[in-house]
């Protein structure tokens, strides 16, 4: 638990949390390891988990007009994915594959995550604020990518 907590302290999603609050999140997290090119999430499928990349790298694959998938973004250590479906309860907006061998992620399930946020409102506030900041960062990245202007 302590090694994992030390790792999680470095994750942006958990910034502002106490060690006890991080322990609560770690307790409801599931560790998953993927080989290179393995599919982690399928496009357009129901989604209940948010994922945190602890090591390795993933590709976010969008579906083109002709139905082919193409990489729309690469995400490295410390980044999160799956947050859109976790928040809006819609289907997955992209597919996710591991780029590097032994890519390690931690999955947070919606039901346990929501229950934890409701039982510890301070934890919920920090995590939701960090989630919003992450979405703002991704939006700025996307806007810059499209227009060349921040």
């Amino acid at each position: 638990m302590h090694d994992l907590r030390a790792l999680m302290v470095q994750i942006e999603l958990f910034r502002g949390l106490t060690e006890a609050q991080i322990d609560k999140l770690v307790a409801i997290s599931q560790r998953e390891v993927y080989p290179a090119n393995a599919t982690i999430l399928n496009h357009n499928m129901p989604g209940d988990n948010l994922y945190i990349i602890v090591s390795g790298e993933v590709a976010v694959l969008k579906r083109g007009a002709a139905g082919q998938f193409y990489p729309a973004l690469y995400l490295g250590e410390g980044q999160i994915f799956g947050e859109v479906a976790l928040l809006d309860q819609g289907t997955r907006s992209a597919a996710i594959t591991a780029v590097q061998a032994d890519t390690v992620v931690y999955a947070l399930g919606r039901q346990a995550f929501d229950a934890l946020c409701q039982s510890d409102l301070a934890l919920g506030f920090h995590v939701m604020r960090n989630l919003a900041l992450d979405l703002a960062f991704k939006l700025r990245h996307r806007n810059y990518d499209m227009s060349g202007d921040v």
Binding site: Q10, Y70, A72, Y74, G76, Q79, H141
Partner: peptide
């Protein structure tokens, strides 16, 4: 210090990346 970096490729042709690094 920790740096969260948005990498965008000049001229397009690559999707870019987001990394957190020391």
């Amino acid at each position: 210090m920790i740096y969260k970096v948005s990498y965008v490729v000049l001229g397009g042709g690559h999707p870019g990346s987001i990394k957190t690094q020391t």
